[in-house]
Design a protein around this nucleic acid. Structure first.
Lengths: 116, 116
DNA sequence: TATCATATATAGATAATCTATATATAGGGA
DNA sequence: TCCCTATATATAGATTATCTATATATGATA
């Protein structure tokens, strides 16, 4: 089940960095992994991913190297940097804050405001 | 603590509809309520909210009425419609799917893919 | 040989935010 | 009294993260 694209907004970078924290990967592989790990909830498009990877590389969050060791075709592998790991930690903390706040609103109920 | 704006993308409509499910509210009040209920995680801007409310009204998700019963100033109250409640239910389901998928990716670990 | 999956890339469109600005009233402090 | 802040709604234009569409090229399969 795919979700409305706007909901994914902002978390794609975090998800990509998380994949790279586990192991080096190439772009096409990330798309497949995200799809599998999320039961097809995330259907990231190539047109979204590649520019995003280029940006992350420019910012020093990841670095890339070509590899065709076990494949005739050259694949561009990405590796997360120390700086990238820092960004991932920030994004994770932000996600926790955000998702728990959404859940709090969805649960509704009393707020301090209603005690006035 | 405010979050990066892009993360909020897509969930604002759901949060607004949820507030209106509990009680009729006017725009400015929604901004304050969201801020309070989320411990300032959501700092929705007026320039975001009012166009959003106008769109929801056009789509028949909410309807509005002016009221100045307990206030000299006229406030525009919004009421959620049956259609709006349906949309809210959809958005809630989508949020559950999305957030659990993100958490699954963040937890990392084995996937079917790695069994190949 | 034709088609599909793999693999990367870029240009332009879409859409949900934001900032900035405008208007107007009520209340508090100098 | 005057100014500033909070309240309250509104719109125009900028920003940005997605998307779609398109391009290129190789390997596997029918």
């Amino acid at each position: 089940m795919a979700i409305e694209k706007s909901l994914l907004n902002g978390s794609t970078t975090m998800l990509i960095l998380k994949l790279l924290e586990d192991k080096d990967m190439y772009g096409y592989q990330m798309i497949e992994e995200l799809s599998k790990k999320s039961d097809d909830t995330f259907a990231l498009k190539a047109g979204t991913l590649y520019p995003l990877l280029h940006n992350l590389e420019q910012q020093g969050m990841v670095c890339s190297y070509d590899d065709n060791a076990d494949c005739a075709r050259v694949r561009k592998y990405y590796n997360i940097t120390k700086k990238g790991k820092g960004l991932l930690a920030d994004k994770k903390a932000e996600w926790q804050t955000y998702s728990s706040a959404v859940n709090r609103v969805l649960q509704g109920g009393a707020t301090l405001a209603e005690a006035y």
